[in-house]
Simulated scan of single mutants.
Amino acid sequence: MVPMPPPELPVESTPLPYEARLDARPRAQIDLVVIHCTELPDLATAREYGERVLYADSGQGNSGHFYIDRDGAVHMWVAPERVANHTRGYNPRSIGIELVNTGRYPRWLDANHQAMDEPYTEAQIVALIALLKVLSDDYPALQFIAGHEDLDTTTVAAEDDPAQTVRRKRDPGPLFPWDRVLRQVRLKRLEP
């Protein structure tokens, strides 16, 4: 039996240090959720990566809006009314949700290390579905969902063998339960 989500979804808000520098946007602009996996070992490491300032001119870094840990705990690091840097070309219209998962860590771009074999936990998927329902209620323009791998199909030279190419982004990957999630939310999968 699939556990039901809690009646209220607790969300821990711990804004990133540069959140106020991210562009503000109207709620009506948000029509897409992008599902990611952190491709890092744990939430603490993801936070460390999220706090890194990568764009000196703006003082910003890369992060999603929400992070869901393996135990189902939901963390908001960027308010949805701010544009987070999580998916090239789609940031102004989307909310990024990161699921803690090792993905291809630590050799993301090695040709001989492209398997993404850590399953998502039941607690993560239950929390994700609950969060998607809350977001759908709170953001009336929200109608689409996509995986990072759907939207960023760029290939790059493999770091361990430059003669081969690999996908730059593969998340959330082959173990993400798309059918289950789509059956339980009103969002439609975006086909770019």
Rank of each mutant, 00 (worst) to 15 (best):
V166Y: 01
L135T: 02
I129P: 02
R168E: 06
P172W: 07
G173H: 05
E149F: 00
T165P: 05
E159C: 10
A141P: 02
S136V: 12
H148P: 00
E159N: 15
L132N: 08
V166N: 08
D150K: 00
Q164G: 11
I145V: 13
L131P: 06
L175I: 14
L151Y: 03
D138P: 04
D161G: 11
K169S: 11
L135F: 00
E149D: 13
D152N: 14
D152E: 13
R168I: 03
V166I: 10
D138Y: 06
G147Y: 05
P162M: 06
L151K: 09
D171K: 10
P174W: 05
T154Q: 13
V166Q: 04
D160G: 09
G147D: 07
R167V: 06
V156D: 00
V134F: 00
A158I: 14
G173A: 13
A163L: 14
A163N: 14
T165D: 08
A158C: 09
F176H: 05
E159I: 07
P140W: 01
T153E: 13
Q143V: 06
A146H: 05
L128H: 07
H148I: 08
I145C: 03
H148W: 11
T154S: 07
E149G: 02
R168C: 06
Q164I: 15
S136G: 11
D161H: 07
F144Q: 11
D138S: 09
L142H: 11
V156S: 06
I129Q: 01
L151Q: 05
L175A: 10
D152L: 03
P162W: 07
L151P: 02
G147A: 13
R170V: 11
Q164M: 11
D161E: 12
T155P: 02
K169I: 15
R170G: 07
T153I: 15
L132T: 08
E149I: 03
F144P: 03
I129R: 00
T155N: 05
H148K: 13
R170K: 14
R170W: 09
F144S: 10
S136D: 05
A158E: 05
A163E: 15
A158D: 08
A141S: 10
F144L: 14
K169Y: 13
L131K: 02
D150M: 07
L128W: 08
G147M: 02
A130N: 11
S136R: 09
V166E: 10
P174V: 14
H148M: 14
L135H: 05
T154N: 07
Q164K: 15
L131D: 03
T153C: 05
F176E: 01
G173S: 07
V134D: 01
P172F: 06
R170Y: 14
L131N: 01
H148S: 15
L151S: 08
D161Y: 12
R168K: 15
D137P: 04
T153D: 09
Q143R: 15
L132G: 04
